[in-house]
Write a protein that binds this DNA or RNA. Structure first.
Length: 294
DNA sequence: ACCAGCTCCTGCTTGC
DNA sequence: TGCAAGCAGGAGCTGG
């Protein structure tokens, strides 16, 4: 799925067509994604004005004006593993029925689960074959209390994240650094790809016990995490199987992967004989260089 | 409290 | 060519 850079890219793509708009029509095609959608979900979205589009970790946050009960709410969207959001120019005569994305985008029409049509005539379609994604509506002023957001660690691109805070989060952890970084309580927004990439940039072996890494190397790791994410965002994210930007464009950071998916290739560290290896940690593939990662 | 493993779902790739 | 197993970017939950 979309990790932090992909969600940020989607946010930036949606912002110009959704922020400040009114939702003229909301449609839902099924009652649930990973979990049940909120009661009367489409009904509650219809007619609402959209404020800012924000992001927390891998969650897209769409601020809405007050509902009938008088409280501003935020639409929380998680793309899971296979979620995709597409922007479609709606027909001037009115919104097309759900399932017609194939006509406008060239993609599949199956698994279009939720759609929002703005008064300006854009249709925003959420498509998610595996349905590991999620959506919820929650009072904006209590957003940090939402169960999906409450336990998240610091945003890696904010001032709340540093070598110092990372060192504190890793202190005493007896798990491999790979697993510790995938744990969203340590730092928010990393997934399998960017953990592999950041560890390679930092020269740290994925099996190293998190709590045993020196402060100096944790500082380097914090920097590597930031740089990896910044570079990926600048490239529009990474396009593997499903992911595309909201405008349908492919991200291109996958061409910049140093280790992910490159088993057997030489490591860009350039050390003689350095090859990328693949191991499995807690059921997930880890790619790393045996020479430059220690 | 911490940690490893299982699980949800569909679809693409791989190997026989 | 056809089929089925294996694997995939997440993360909540269970049980040790």
């Amino acid at each position: 799925m979309p990790e932090l850079p992909e969600v940020e890219t989607v946010r930036r793509g949606l912002e110009p067509v959704l922020a400040g708009q009114r939702i003229r029509v909301a449609e839902q095609r099924r009652p649930d994604l990973r979990w049940p959608l909120p009661e009367r979900f489409a009904e509650r979205l219809t007619g609402r004005h959209v404020g800012a589009l924000r992001r927390r970790s891998k969650y897209l946050l769409v601020d809405l004006d007050a509902d009938a009960a008088g409280a501003p709410e935020t639409l929380i969207i998680h793309l899971g593993m296979s979620g995709r959001i597409s922007i479609i120019e709606a027909d001037a005569a009115g919104p097309a029925p759900l399932g017609n994305t194939a006509l406008a985008s060239g993609g599949t029409a199956a698994h279009d689960h939720v759609s929002l049509t703005t008064e300006a005539g854009h249709r925003i379609v959420y498509n998610d074959p595996r349905r590991f994604g999620a959506m919820d509506l929650w009072p904006t002023d209590r957003l940090e209390e939402h169960r999906l957001l409450a336990g998240l660690g610091p945003e890696p691109l904010s001032n709340a994240f540093s070598g110092e805070t990372l060192a504190a989060a890793l202190a005493g952890r007896q798990t491999p650094i790979k697993a510790a970084l995938l744990d969203q309580r340590t730092v928010a927004g990393l997934g399998n790809i960017y953990v592999c990439e950041a560890l390679n940039r930092a020269g740290i072996h994925p099996r190293r016990i998190a709590g045993s890494i020196s402060r100096t190397r944790i500082e380097r790791l914090a920097g590597a995490i930031r740089e990896t994410l910044q570079d990926a965002i600048a490239a529009g994210g990474s396009s593997l199987r499903d992911y595309r930007q909201a405008d349908g464009e492919l991200g291109y950071f996958q061409h910049s992967f140093r280790v992910y998916g490159r088993e057997g290739e030489p490591c860009p560290c350039g050390v003689a004989g350095a090859r990328i290896l693949r191991i499995v940690q807690s059921g997930r593939s880890t790619f790393y260089c045996s020479r430059c990662q220690r």
